[in-house]
């Protein structure tokens, strides 16, 4: 896959995207939330109408459409499509006057690639797709939040056990003032058994 479809236009000013005087590469979306994303059109041929009309502006195509591959595409096809699109949209090679726009596209392509090249994430995404959920970025987020949920529940149980332990200790402290050390130990043994 050495074919290069990228249009490379020599740039006039190589320091186009350096530090502070540069305009924002990505304006912050007005409404910020993980599920409401600013979505960029892929060009008329790729855009398909979306049933979730809560999205203003253009619709999010599927990640497969984004990479321009069929839903049955193999890992090799995904990788090839990704590298080809990277050669088009990466800011090192994109046309000088469209760096901002292309950088956004690059980040989307990257996310699509990361989702589809990971069998587990792809599976989750495919299931969402089958349910008719066309949120381009939901699969990955869903996956991440699942992981966090596990973390959290584990953390919570550990925390609760610590808490109950602490409660026990403070109970001893309150009631143990008048008790001898041996009495305290006996009481503790009885309680824990």
């Amino acid at each position: 896959m050495c074919c290069n479809s990228a249009v490379i236009i020599p740039r006039l000013d190589p320091c186009f995207s350096f530090l502070p005087t540069r305009p924002d590469i990505i304006p912050f979306p007005a409404s910020v939330s993980f599920r409401i994303r600013t979505v960029f059109p892929l060009g008329p041929s790729k855009s398909i109408p979306n049933d979730t009309d809560q999205f203003s502006g253009s619709d999010p195509a599927t990640l497969y459409d984004l990479l321009g591959i069929p839903e049955t595409g193999t890992l090799l096809e995904i990788k090839q499509a990704y590298k080809q699109l990277a050669r088009k949209y990466h800011p090192d090679v994109s046309p000088h006057d469209r760096v901002e726009e292309y950088t956004k596209m690059f980040i989307r392509v990257q996310e699509a690639y990361e989702t589809l090249s990971d069998p587990r994430r792809r599976d989750l995404y495919d299931r969402d797709l089958a349910k008719g959920i066309h949120l381009a970025f939901s699969a990955r987020r869903l996956f991440e939040s699942d992981e966090q949920m596990e973390d959290k529940s584990e953390w919570k149980s550990r925390w609760q056990s610590q808490l109950s332990h602490l409660k026990k200790r403070s109970m001893y402290k309150d009631s143990g003032d008048n008790m001898s050390w041996g009495a305290k130990m006996r009481k503790q043994r009885n309680e824990s058994s």
């Binding site: 995207s17 924002d24 590469i25 007005a30 409404s31 910020v32 939330s33 990466h90 950088t103």
Partner: peptide
């Protein structure tokens, strides 16, 4: 919401702000 982005020249920007639930802005 804390958002970070890194552009092609590796410059890092942090954007942060507050949105109340149910509000758009």
């Amino acid at each position: 919401n804390v958002c970070m982005d890194i552009d092609a020249s590796n410059s890092l920007r942090v954007l942060a702000g507050v949105i109340m639930p149910g509000e758009q802005n």
